[in-house]
Amino acid sequence: MTEKFAPTDKILEAHGYDAAKLIPILQQVQEVYRYLPEDVMRHIADKLNISPAKVFGVATFFAHFAITPKGKHVIKVCNGTACHVKGSANLISAVKTKLKLTGNKETTDDGMFTLECVSCLGACGLAPVMVIDETVHGQCTPELVSKYIDEVIAAEAKNAK
């Protein structure tokens, strides 16, 4: 039980158990678990002496925080003004078709990919933009979307061997 929270405890300690540092604490904790699990948020609330509802409120206020598990690879499609005008909607539907994501589903069943629509990546000159993990793909098209995703899948398959 305590083992599970060990990384969280380390982060909490580094921030001096200061409730005012809740946001950086949540950021670092999310890096560990790839999202904010409920029991971890409860643990944080308990240690910071604030209510779990308050932690949940902060976690759901910022788009950066995820309260459901994210996939191993995060695909961000920019839907800012420039990207939107340049057809980012087509990119989003291309990702959804490729990964068989229907309705509001953001993460694939195998936990490999999560699709996020973000407001502006600050790379408007490259519109429309898609980012897979840390790699930025500018002037993207539905065909390229498929190709880039295939590359990630191929790399995963290679690693598995």
């Binding site: 604030i50 209510s51 509802a53 308050k54 949940f56 409120g57 759901t60 206020f61 788009a63």
Partner: peptide, 10 residues
């Protein structure tokens, strides 16, 4: 002094 409810989402 409980905080059973709070604002959430945005």
């Amino acid at each position: 002094g409980i905080g059973a409810i709070d604002f959430a989402f945005r």
